[in-house]
Write a protein that binds this DNA or RNA. Structure first.
Lengths: 219, 219, 219, 219
DNA sequence: GGGTAAACGAGACGGTACGTCAAGTCTTTAG
DNA sequence: CTAAAGACTTGACGTACCGTCTCGTTTACCC
């Protein structure tokens, strides 16, 4: 994969906590005074992202994040409205995602590319589990829910809808079709298998999704 | 609604905790000994269902359920593997759902009927929120996840797939189509809007879902 | 030591739980019907004694005894008034103590023999810890307290007092001395070091006890 | 009693939980944040002491202490190693004991005074029962046992031994006598009757204890 | 360049819920 | 019919986090 795609992430950041050459020696006990806000924020997000990817939402507690970031809980509560909001922020901080939906002029090909990349993201990386747990947590965490809609699913929906609108202008897609619904039928179907995994998310599944919605399934 | 539908529930049970005529009188302090297992189970499920529907998963704790059922935590832990498993059981106990997917001979009409009923269930009753929270909880609760797949989503998938297979035998649907994928594109799309509610679940949305997948959206 | 003494026990019973030939196989699930009372009592006392001597009062619970005796809690509650009462009974069942205070005609020699044997019992066998824990438990267990006074300390006090009265009749001890008090100053002093072990119970300690009370400590 | 004595306590503190003049008014809902450690400790010890003296060790649970102190269990677990350690601390906090062993130059008189005062403490106040229960609890609570030896029985032993050594220097007591043993024969004998109450602790008992050990009981 | 205020770390605090254990009571069922 | 079996309530246990709050410290900014 040479390019990056919608709903996809470019790479997981490396969380290198120190060279193995380092001796266990003096732990560089930091004082307790004021430090630059940006630095503290960064360390908290590093710790949050690492914890989230390494151990999942089950082990993600504000206390653990504070402890591993060397920060205090007070500081975290000052900046993030809820555990979930911090987790989402940590996720974005960790994964360096790229939002893009390049047009090749063939909407079927573009949709296939995007959906397959998304399917791979969900199945081949730890992001799948993390996203699932974030969506799960959002069901009982208003702040996370709001953040998720605004910064995660919203922008991704828009990008896909815009690509389909461009295709319609090119005459590839029918007028009168609500592309928002199509998004639910492509990406939403993937989330369905992610969150209620009766069946796996496969390459074939991704292909069928696009095929069904583009050509219909009637006899 | 004169008939009942797939993924639909017939009615919420009434949680009548005693006629208002009853006097506050002797509280009938029960002893601590053994009571019939079935009775205890029933009272626990009543309490679990009521709590879930009234206050949601956020307020659903084993301690609350035990207190309101007049049961002990030990007993609950003996029978249910996790908080989520109890919640799911309480939900089923409360909603008396009916699984059915009647054929009229017109698959489009049948799918429309089912999806619309499902959309109404999610939006017009408290079941929508409860299902969302159960799915959310299942992301970090293995026992609930397993129960949900086996007793909730699994049977419902099968019913829909079977109906479409009957339609194919009648010549309504094309051979070579994976109906499991269609399920994800119809019901899964609804779950998408339930769990990531950037857009509402409407009658029009339900209609578009069926239309898109049956006839395709190509120009 | 060829003879046995007051406040002393002859031997610990062997707790052989089964021949090593026995296979781990079917646990011989006994039915729930009635068994001879004496047999059940015996098995319960075996289990209680073994548990008490092996793991101490901290691990001694009615549930453990019931489980290891293969009996039900109900049966235990029917025959013993409290946990402590069962423990005491189990202790007596296990240790096969002998109450005797033989006269040699020299009361100092006899007291020394008895006190030294008691000191050895407390320090060299597990009985010391068990007695301490039983006395401890008796402070918040009325039934055990009553049983302890009646079946343990009471008879032992009487035996010692009687021996000293015989010595008085022989002209060895002064008239007008309350021998009950002497018992507290000999055996009671040992219990003091058993229950509040600032100092150990030694051979020298035992000797000093007898010397002090027989001859006084004045200059 | 005009002076205060070894092993004796001066007075029980008054547990006044609020003047009756106080109105029921604003309940002064305290926030959940940190309060001065000393204040919290004090309130916990007040509650522990009051509970111990009022209802005894049987009703003494960490949960009750926390509830009545308006503190949280976590806080208690942070500072006290065990239930017994808290109880002992609460006892000391409540009774304001005075350790003193004044010399009059007549050791018999001084021992009599001290032993009688101790006997009165054990029989006339609630301290007797509490001490018995603490010693009882210590038999299965290592932390309490250690605290009891170090802060209770140890210092009291030393004081009595020191007084007798002073008497020996004055020529009142014989050389070569182990005064630690004498302590066991005086105070230990009292504990014997406290913990195994076959016979009561009386004024006459106290007198006999001192007489026997000072002058011997030989004919 | 010194003084001050904001932001920080540390972590104790009151709480809620967890999951476990034993005590003691009561129903069911086997013999 | 009766006693063993064992399911039940109760209540305390000790732990984990929650979100709040007090403290003392340290930097950054302003005068």
């Amino acid at each position: 994969m040479t390019s990056s795609f919608l709903w996809t992430l470019r790479s997981f950041k490396h969380f290198v906590n120190g060279s193995s050459i380092c001796q266990a020696g003096p732990v560089e006990k930091r004082g307790r005074g004021r430090r630059p806000a940006a630095q503290v924020r960064g360390e908290i997000l590093d710790a949050a992202g690492k914890l989230l990817l390494d151990e999942g939402m089950g082990a993600f507690t504000i206390e653990r994040v504070a402890a591993e970031a060397g920060a205090s809980k007070t500081t975290i509560y000052k900046w993030w409205a809820s555990k979930g909001a911090l987790a989402l922020d940590g996720y974005f901080h960790a994964v360096e995602s790229t939002l893009a939906f390049p047009d090749t002029g063939d909407i079927e090909r573009d949709l296939l590319t995007q959906i397959r990349a998304f399917a791979r993201l969900l199945t081949r990386t730890r992001a799948g589990r993390v996203i699932a747990e974030l969506i799960g947590q959002a069901q009982t965490d208003e702040d996370l829910a709001a953040a998720l809609l605004e910064h995660y699913s919203g922008p991704r929906r828009q990008l896909a809808v815009a690509a389909m609108e461009r295709a319609r202008e090119r005459g590839e897609l029918a007028a009168g079709v609500d592309f928002e619904v199509v998004v639910d039928q492509l990406w939403g179907a993937c989330y369905h298998r992610l969150l209620l995994p009766n069946l796996p998310i496969t390459e074939k599944f991704a292909t069928s999704l696009v095929r069904n919605v583009l050509r219909g399934i009637r006899a």
